[in-house]
Amino acid sequence: MQSLLLYLFLILTVVSTSVFIYVYRSSIKAGDKDGGLTNVLTKRMWFILILFVVLAIFFSATVPKSPYFMFKDEIPSKSVNVTAGQYFFYMSYSAINPDAPTSEPIELGVNELVEFRVTSRDVTHTFAVYDENNQVVAQTQAMPGYVNNLRWKFEKPGTYKIFCLEYCGAGHHIMRGSFTVK
């Protein structure tokens, strides 16, 4: 998915930059008498209309895929409590006491609906899940005082890594965790 977005970005950027280069060259070639574009207003309106339609399509296609709507009508078969703290992730099947946090190894089933119940015991962190190809597959913020519920089904077995994506202090980059999917 990420590489798809990268291609989309590259294509659009190359197109828009080409337009700028083309327009620049047309100005270099122009003589004193040349009057530029005609019917500007009509063209402008077409441009806006097309942009609007493209964005509207993009909008309606993507909004339903937002994480808040995923697996909405199911009850998860497993829940994993996650408490982030400088600079650890505590993960457990049972609730975690922020004053004496404990962790246990987590093992999930393939295609099993899990709910990560994520909070923090100090500053804001992120609970970001990386797959075996080291790509982000899902994430949610870990905010003190709040529980964020992230639901997900892992389609591939393997070891998944957790990294923190919200800057939380000088140990931010060493914060990590993992779990397995079988």
Binding site: S77, S79, T83, A95, I96, N97, T119, P144
Partner: peptide, 14 residues
């Protein structure tokens, strides 16, 4: 104003 919140509400969910 708030503290970290009472985690006991999370015990044994699901």
């Amino acid at each position: 104003s708030q503290s970290l919140g009472d985690f006991r509400e999370e015990i044994n969910i699901y």
